Computed example of a mutant assay.
Amino acid sequence: MSLDDDYLRYAWRRHGYDHDWYEWSMLHERPAVRWPENKPLALWLNVSVQFFPLNQRNIPFKVPNGMTMPYPDLRHFSLREYGNRVGIYRVLKALDHYGVTPTFAVNTQVAERMPYLRDALVERGDEILCHGWNMDHQHYGGQDRDEEAELVKRAVGGLRDLTGRDIRGWLSPARVHSPNTPGLLVENGIQWFGDWVNDDMPYPFRTDKGVLHAIPLSTELEDQFILCNNLHSEASWAEQIADACDFLLAEARQQGGRLLALNIHPWLMGQPHRIGYLEQVLAHVMGSGQVWSASASDILARCQASQE
């Protein structure tokens, strides 16, 4: 059976990608990035501070890591709340002990509902990015553009008002978004987002409203992905991150700076039986003396300056 002629005349058939979101390029062929103090590896440690509603809408699909039992699923609701009441303080203590600069991905409804936590994060002075309104308000293909525009505006504007901070970054709930989302982010003054995980370094991302930047936040090394999706042990999680760190360090020495992007959740890593594994990871990563720990926006700015 032969292919239809229309297949061979596909308008986007060319070397590289079949879209215009960003340029085709191979990582090892790009200009080398240099981090401060000539350190080969940058660390973006992202702490996801989330609110999962008890009465989920689950539109357009069931919320990842959300409620799983019949309403009211107090078991899972209270476990998620544990992270914002108890676990996050253990995480903060560990990060400070090892000299790690975190970035906080905050649902706007967390800042609205939990002023004690919002104020504690603001007082630290670390970067805060918008993680959407809450984990049950997803952005998706087929969503009405005006509806999504209102949601982005409410989430980003609300977080700016509640924190008094210049919110420059975005991470979509469940890391899903519609074709309209990137442009809406630009319209609301967002400079970068972490949804796409197709690289080890930041890169420019085109939208119909201007240039956005993508800073890939690894899914493969995320605590919930390894522990909850892959059902690996905490020891395996720590080993995988150590392996990634060592490999990226070696690659960076040969090809230029690399980025280790780690996403953690206080309701997982802030548990008393897991916090020791987070400390083990931080000790390994920061113990080399070759890692620059910085906010996501500072990493992007340095990457851009290095390539000018």
Results as ranks from 00 to 15, higher is better:
Glu148Lys: 05
Pro115Met: 10
Gly157Trp: 06
Pro216Trp: 08
Asp144Leu: 05
Gln240Val: 05
Cys130Phe: 07
Leu121Cys: 08
Leu162Met: 14
Glu150Leu: 09
Gly169Glu: 01
Gly210Lys: 01
Leu129His: 01
Ala214Glu: 15
Val176Tyr: 08
Ala242Thr: 13
Val176Lys: 06
Arg206Asp: 12
Asp146Leu: 10
Glu234Tyr: 06
Asn230Asp: 10
Asp161Pro: 01
Asp144Ser: 03
Asp144Ala: 13
Met135Leu: 10
Asp195Lys: 08
His131Cys: 06
Ile167Gly: 01
Trp196Ile: 11
Leu217Met: 13
Trp196Cys: 00
Asn198Asp: 15
Asn198Arg: 09
Ile226Cys: 00
Pro202Cys: 06
Leu217Trp: 00
Asp243Glu: 15
Phe205Val: 02
Ile226Gln: 05
Glu187Lys: 13
Pro182Asp: 07
Gly169Trp: 05
Asp136Gln: 07
Asn230Val: 09
Gly132Phe: 00
Asp208Ile: 06
Phe193Trp: 12
Ala214Trp: 00
Asn198Val: 13
Glu123Ser: 14
Ile226Asp: 02
Asp161Thr: 11
Phe225Leu: 07
Tyr203Gln: 05
Trp170Ile: 04
Ala238Ser: 13
Arg175Met: 09
Gly142Asn: 07
Leu117Lys: 02
Leu159Gln: 03
Gln138His: 09
Arg145Asp: 10
Asp144Glu: 07
Ser218Val: 05
Asp119Met: 11
Leu217Ala: 07
Leu117Tyr: 04
Met114Asn: 12
Met135Ala: 12
Ser172Glu: 04
Gly164Lys: 14
Glu127Cys: 02
Gln191Tyr: 07
Ile241Cys: 03
Leu171Tyr: 08
Ala238Gly: 09
Gly189Trp: 11
Asp126Gly: 06
Trp133Thr: 01
Gly169Pro: 05
Val211Arg: 12
Cys245Arg: 13
Glu222Thr: 14
Asn229Leu: 08
Glu187Gly: 07
Ser172Thr: 09
Pro202Met: 11
Gln138Ser: 06
Glu150Tyr: 03
Asp195Leu: 02
Val197Asn: 11
Asp161Asn: 12
Gln224Glu: 09
Asp208Ser: 11
Cys228Asp: 10
